[in-house]
Design a protein around this nucleic acid. Structure first.
Length: 562
RNA sequence: UCCGGGGUCGUCUAAUUGGCAGGACAGCGGUUUUUGGUGCCGCGUGUAGGGGUUCGAGUCCUCUCCCCGGAACCA
């Protein structure tokens, strides 16, 4: 686990949020205090979109010497679960933001919220409405259309108090009554047309059990929870912009223990070829499109972790894209470039053949085994070397041999000399084909003087290829991934993202031949398969490697153009 | 339809708050290279449109256009 402080974010130009905090500090608004909060609802796992909010909330607090609370926004017992609480805690720690001590919960404030609700009733600012949800919705009016006041709006304080207490006691059926704030049914902002504060739910809550029969709505709980915790800067995404007047209105009516928090909205993170709606992600899991929340194709933090994305790369990406109020969709390639940049520096190199073709060195002495030394990481000399066995019978990549080479093909082809990485220069002398016309074995001779990969006469070859000794190879599986959604903006064409789902997005390659040292790769570790990409060892299944991201591939681009 | 928020290279994002429109990714070319990887060098008529203020406008005013969000007892 890496500490967030290990990669300090250098930003010459502050974003609008940091600018705002700086101004608040200059004005003495909160006496220089900066406190934020990250408020996930425990009804799903964290995804890449949350990572942006997390880094903003936690890093902002850190930069200004403040604190950031983790608060579970558990106001809706219908969908929430402790399994998600545990999962979120785990993902947060992995991302680099471990929570010290116990996390906070909105449900811890249910009693306080309740008494504040009675206070509003006593002041004539809230009332029990017996209408059903359709009636309430219809009464709200519409854009540019006036609202209609509920027939229950002018009940006496006593009656309201009485009914509200019976609601709490569980005397009424779900949906039969709600508590509403009495604000303004003609307000131009729909959120202010007497919003619902409490609804009746006879549902088991993951923390409070069966002790409550009424549950606060998001709007009634959020600002007050912020205030109770002493939050100064409450950051949320743009869709809550129209809720801000309501956030402020509630706080104005109440005797707050301290500072009045303020809400600031920013644009959520969207990525090409990706969906982040919790409903969609849950659907992918439920329909078996993916293996689970931690499927390496999922944009969840646990999916990205299993895929091999370093937490630091995700943090650096979030810091780099910054924060603004412009709706935007970042190209997934930018995130991938951060992943590559990080892995290039840190991942050890290994040789793995994913689509094996037999190569026989015809002039290799019978039974001879040569141990060659290979660098673990050319970007990091301190990472040392390893010894790999070389013999006269090898596996090479099927793509690395062509009987009839296209233009600019530098790899093995009859008559051509290439280098086997760290071993010898070899020259192709022939090949055999099977009934289908595909090569089954390639023959070559080697230059014994070129051990290590260089000939004494200094002659050059245009290609260096990876290989695995047939006698020493271990077998394994590699999972290659395409984007889960083929369209940049899933659903843009038809309105349904599932129309752009690529059901063949996983290409499972069994029978791969790996260099033996891969057996020692710790679960979860990421290595580079030379010339193929970065691969993460599955945390549970030995010898299963997930391709995190490929290498840039000039040859592939060249072929695509022709 | 009403209210609110936005619009800067292909994609994101900056511009000392009115003073040379810069960076990253992507792409293209070159170079280095025992990974067709990495590194290094180079390549850009992008301020949604019209009008105005000003010595000077991405920034201020004005009109227009386009995009996003908002009428759950979800968050």
């Amino acid at each position: 686990m890496e500490a967030p402080g290990s990669d300090p974010v250098e930003r010459e130009n502050a974003d609008f949020v940091r600018e705002l905090v700086r101004r608040d500090n200059a004005d003495g608004t909160y006496a220089g205090r900066v406190q934020t909060r990250f408020p996930p609802e425990p009804n799903g796992y964290l995804h890449i979109g949350h990572a942006k909010a997390i880094t903003l909330d936690f890093e902002l607090a850190r930069e200004f010497g403040g604190t950031c609370n983790l608060r579970f926004d558990d106001t809706n017992p219908d969908t929430e679960d402790t399994a998600f609480v545990d999962g979120i805690l785990e993902d947060l720690a992995w991302l680099g933001y471990p929570i010290e001590g116990e996390p906070l919960y909105a449900s811890d404030y249910f009693e306080q919220l309740y008494s504040w609700a009675e206070l509003l009733i006593e002041r004539g600012l809230a009332y029990v409405d017996d209408s059903d949800s359709e009636t309430i919705s219809a009464g709200r009016g519409g854009y540019g259309k006036p609202g209609v006041e509920s027939e229950w709006r002018d009940r006496s304080v006593e009656e309201n108090l009485d009914l509200f207490r019976l609601m709490r006691a569980g005397e009424f059926a779900e949906g039969s009554r709600v508590l509403r704030a009495k604000i303004d049914m003609q307000h131009e902002n729909m959120q202010m047309r007497d919003p619902v504060m409490y609804r009746i739910r006879h549902e088991h809550h993951h923390r409070t059990g069966d002790s409550w029969h009424i549950y606060p709505t998001y709007d009634w709980a959020h600002g007050q929870s912020d205030a109770i915790e002493g939050v100064t800067h409450s950051l949320c995404t743009l869709e809550f912009d129209s809720h801000r007047p309501l956030y402020d209105w509630y706080l104005e009516q109440l005797p707050l223990p301290g500072d009045t928090p303020r809400q600031t909205e920013f644009a959520r993170l969207e990525l090409t070829h990706t969906v982040t709606s919790k409903r969609r992600l849950a659907g992918l899991v439920a329909d078996g499109v993916v293996d689970g929340w931690d499927d390496p194709r999922m944009p969840t933090l646990r999916g990205l972790r299993r895929r091999g994305y370093p937490a630091a790369a995700i943090r650096e990406f979030c810091a780099f894209i910054g924060v603004s109020r412009t709706n935007s969709r970042h190209q997934i390639e930018l995130l991938e470039s951060f992943v590559r940049q990080h892995l290039n520096r840190t991942a050890q190199r290994r040789m793995a053949v994913l689509d094996p073709l037999r190569l026989v060195i015809t002039d290799w002495p019978e039974g001879r085994i040569d141990e060659v030394e290979l660098t673990n990481n050319p970007e990091d000399p301190t990472d040392g070397t390893r010894r790999v066995a070389f013999t006269g019978e090898l596996w090479i990549e099927r793509d690395d041999f062509r009987a009839d080479p296209p233009p600019k093909y530098f790899r093995l082809t009859p008559g051509r000399e290439v280098r086997l990485r760290g071993a010898y220069l070899i020259t192709c002398t022939g090949f055999e084909v099977g009934p289908d016309g595909e090569p089954t074995v390639v023959y070559a001779t080697h230059d014994p003087e070129s051990r290590g990969g260089n000939a004494p006469d200094g002659r050059k070859v245009k290609s260096t290829m990876h290989w695995v000794s047939a006698q020493h190879a271990i077998e394994g599986t590699a999972a290659l991934y395409e984007r889960l959604f083929s369209a940049e903006v899933p659903g843009e064409a038809t309105g349904d993202p599932m129309d752009d789902l690529d059901r063949a997005s996983r290409d499972l390659r069994t029978g791969c031949r790996f260099e033996p040292s891969l057996a020692d790769t710790p679960p979860g570790a990421v290595v580079q398969f030379e010339r193929l990409g970065y691969f993460a060892h599955d945390p549970r299944a030995p010898m299963l490697f997930h391709r995190t991201v490929g290498l840039r591939d000039e040859w592939a681009r060249l072929q695509q153009r022709t």
